[in-house]
């Protein structure tokens, strides 16, 4: 690997890996513009630090490592910008006595979860419901479930309090649950 011409090397890597990186970033952020920015930032960063790249290792692995760090930075940033619509979910679901409104009270779901894990149609509906979440709620779900890390560690890395974290998770789950009930379980 001739890293004496950095721009040429990076250009080659863009041709080879950009689609794969974009697909991953889109899956992780659910936002086209953000995904494109993250991939572009990754290649710019790679250009800056190409001297740190050792020729023997796999460029794709190296690039993905940079990309994944940038995605985590994005999650961290999105926590710092709470969405104003955050609390309206409570007004939607609960009445003035803080009890479930009749039309929103959770109903029993038929016990079919085993089959759902491999059901492509359901997975697509789940993905669509997740896309409807505001940015930082989506990030919270990603972080909580994508790795086996415990929540304390996640909070430390993000520099947020556990309270902040579970409050956002709770809102995300309220909304997700409702979306799944409407689009799958009640059909």
């Amino acid at each position: 690997m001739d890293t004496s011409k950095p721009a040429a090397t990076i250009k080659c890597w863009v041709e080879l890996y950009s689609d794969s990186m974009y697909s991953w970033a889109l899956h992780k952020t659910s936002n086209k513009e953000m995904a494109e920015d993250l991939v572009q930032d990754t290649f710019m960063a790679a250009l800056q630090s190409i001297n740190n790249f050792k020729g023997e290792s796999n460029p794709k692995t190296w690039l993905f490592a940079i990309l994944k760090n940038k995605i985590n930075d994005h999650y961290r940033r999105s926590f710092r910008n709470p969405i104003i619509s955050d609390i309206s979910i409570f007004e939607t679901l609960f009445d003035s006595n803080d009890q479930w409104k009749d039309e929103h009270r959770p109903q029993w779901w038929a016990d079919e979860t085993g089959h759902l894990l491999d059901n492509d149609e359901f997975q697509q509906i789940l993905q669509n419901c997740m896309k409807k979440l505001p940015g930082n709620w989506f990030s919270a779900i990603q972080l909580k479930f994508m790795e086996e890390k415990n929540s304390e560690l996640i909070c430390q890395e993000l520099e947020i309090t556990p309270t902040n974290f579970w409050q956002i998770l709770h809102r995300a789950k309220l909304k997700l649950r409702k979306c799944l009930e409407l689009n799958w379980f009640k059909k």
Binding site: D19, L26, Q40
Partner: peptide, 16 residues
């Protein structure tokens, strides 16, 4: 799912 984004590639390359 693998998505092809040629516009993105062009954009990045133009900035190198």
């Amino acid at each position: 799912p693998q998505i092809i984004n040629n516009r993105l590639k062009e954009q990045i390359i133009s900035k190198l």
